[in-house]
Computed example of a mutant assay.
Amino acid sequence: MLELLTGLGLASASGLNAYVPLLALGLLGRFTDLVTLPAGWTWLENPWLLGVLGVLCLVDVVADKIPAVDSVNDVVQTLVRPASGGIVFASGVGSETVAVTDPGSLFADGRWIPIVIGVVVALVVHLTKAGVRPVANAATVGVSAPVLSTAEDVTSIGLVLAAILVPVLVLVLLAGAVVAAVLLVRRRRRRRV
């Protein structure tokens, strides 16, 4: 069960920022004992890949703070974020972490299943994010872009940390994000009336 929560947290984080969970898994696997990646996923620890992911993460973080550029970035990321979600879900459910000491072969018979689950989770989160952003930018004349982007980055980092350290918190964070989104939508509707 904890393996699924780890994968869910990592894939959800990918839907917000594709590179944060990939970079976190790679760095934590390479430099700490917090994560031990399964044999098929140790390429995430490659120094060159970590460098590329760091640069891509920085570009994504900056681009996401600029109104209009954030929407273009979301279009480009429509392929990248779900792919990242599939990778981190599959590697996350098979990784040994502080909370998961024996991941075993959770999906041994169908190794593609965790990838599909991660792709779907990340895609749903990404499409929600990408749908909200243009509306928020139009309503606030772009002022909300850096605020929303920063909140998304913090949420992505929080989901990754929760997924690795205390997977049960993933449910709490995701529930909190859903409640916050519903409250924002309601608030927006009340302002229209």
Rank of each mutant, 00 (worst) to 15 (best):
Leu4Ile: 12
Thr6Phe: 15
Leu8Lys: 01
Gly9Glu: 05
Leu16His: 09
Asn17Cys: 03
Ala18Tyr: 05
Tyr19Ala: 00
Leu22Gly: 06
Ala24Trp: 11
Leu27Ile: 14
Gly29Tyr: 00
Arg30Phe: 11
Pro47Thr: 10
Leu49Val: 11
Gly54Ala: 07
Leu58Ser: 09
Ala63Tyr: 11
Lys65Trp: 05
Val69Ile: 15
Asp70Ile: 01
Val75Arg: 08
Thr78Cys: 09
Thr78His: 07
Thr78Ala: 14
Leu79Met: 08
Leu79Gly: 07
Gly86Gln: 02
Val93Lys: 00
Ser95Cys: 11
Ser95Arg: 03
Thr97Gln: 10
Ala99Asn: 04
Ala108Pro: 10
Arg111Leu: 02
Ile113Cys: 03
Val116His: 00
Val120Gly: 01
Val121Lys: 01
Val124Phe: 14
Thr128Lys: 01
Val132Cys: 01
Arg133Thr: 14
Val135Gln: 08
Ala138Gln: 12
Gly142Arg: 12
Gly142Gln: 08
Gly142Met: 11
Ala145Met: 11
Ala145Phe: 15
Thr150Met: 15
Thr150Val: 14
Ala151Pro: 02
Glu152Cys: 07
Asp153Ser: 08
Asp153Met: 08
Leu159Asn: 09
Leu159Val: 07
Leu161Pro: 08
Ala162Thr: 02
Ala162Met: 12
Ala163Met: 10
Leu174Cys: 05
Ala175Asp: 06
Ala181Lys: 03
Val182Ala: 07
Leu184Met: 06
Leu184Val: 09
Val185His: 07
Arg188Phe: 03
Arg190Ile: 04
Arg190Leu: 04
Arg190Val: 03
